[in-house]
Amino acid sequence: MTPRPLIIAVAAMLTIALGAGVYVWNMRRRALDEARLNYTSPVAPPVSGPTEQIALYVAYDDAGVLLPESASIPLPEDRQQRAEELLRALLNRYLGKSSPHPLPPGSEVRDVYLVDPGLAVVDLNADFANGHRSGVLVEELTVGSLVETLSANTPGITRVKFLVDGKERDTLAGHADLADVYDVANVGQMVNALQASQ
């Protein structure tokens, strides 16, 4: 007969081994999921819809200002999808040749959520933030450009919150605060100061 304590010990150890195995398997699966999420495909073309005239607030590094530029892009009817397409059009401007404000390759707006009256949550991908140039002004230009473009073309947005890969992040690249919610009116003052101090 096998002693009872030995059976209990063996059973306990088998349980631990099984548990550890399941835990490792879960960790590996989570890592693979994250890797898949981090995969950055090229910026998707805009969805079909009637072409509309919009204003992009484009950052110019040389002068350190934001300047409005008009563009015509097809926009869907859904308000949330429109917001996403607006920002994708802006990013295309920055990712193209002779960009006035280069962004890192692979930069993308993953989603825009209009979750609360007046609040837009912009979810950027990791490439956008991790590869962004560091500096107070250069980060401020990026944030200002996104907020102004979004609010100027989407009536009713008064506050903007940024996420990176769906998560909160302290700063864009060491300077511009991403932890707090941006007040659109205050960002407007920031943009005016950029223009006035040229």
Partner: peptide, 9 residues
């Protein structure tokens, strides 16, 4: 010099 505003903690 430029005098600006910044979202800077």
């Amino acid at each position: 010099v430029r005098v600006l505003l910044a979202p800077l903690r």
